[in-house]
Amino acid sequence: MKTIFLLLSLLPGIALAADGKLIATPGVSQIEGAAGGGLVPWAQLAGYASRDEIAVNAFASRGTLDDYSLDVFGAQLNLYDRLELSLAEQEFHVESLNLNIRQRVLGAKMRLYGDIVYSRFPQLSMGIQYKKLHDPLVANLLGAKDDSGTDYYLAASKLHLGAVAGLNWLWNVTGRYTEANQIGLLGFGAEGAGYEWQFEASTALLLGRHVAVGVEYRHKPDNLGLQEDDWKSAFIAWVPNKTISLTAGYIDLGEIAGIDDQDGLYLSIMGNF
């Protein structure tokens, strides 16, 4: 405890609760731990840190599908709105087999250009997500090549002030270079199948300062030949202040490991400090 106070006292001038951005504009946490929507990493870095601040954020998310569920816990460190470091622990529950597939995702995202609100052109960031399966059994049985892998992505986001009937409108597009099967939960690559570029996109409308509604789309590869589908979501986020946000959504993840029509409810809570 003493050490923590000592460390904190070494940070003079740094506000402990970063608040240097407009409310709701940094987005929330996506399932692999990066700042984003629910499914897609956005160009924004997590939390309210401006170029003069550090932000620390934590989140918990749950997606409940017909035959599966996904729990994610994670945190991000935003250093001066330049570098985002993230950690996410995923637990994917397979009802039919009564087993869990756990995966860890370590992420880093760097802002290359701009500010989502203020710069003329969209904010641009690049990121990586290193994923490691703790439970590779299912991935191996299905024919995945590896139990760890790395995604690389480039994201562009822009918030247009007052653009749609006076409401703020946000869009994001992300290109991801990946060989992950079902985001890595079913391993990486397969015989004769490897890295490919995938397209992801999000758009949201801010209904006032504290509520955003939006949709997301995430294109996915099909390395295992199991009719892996693209993922879609529609969400509403409530941001009562710069410390907490709650997101609820409908997710449609299509066919997963041979079971079709996997859709359900998504809930996420995030704290920003």
Binding site: Y118, S119, R120, L161, G166, N168
Partner: peptide, 18 residues
Amino acid sequence: VPHPVQNQLLARLAPLRK
């Protein structure tokens, strides 16, 4: 000032930040 009008003014001011 209504929310949409606030945003329209902010949109005019935002380019000045640089």
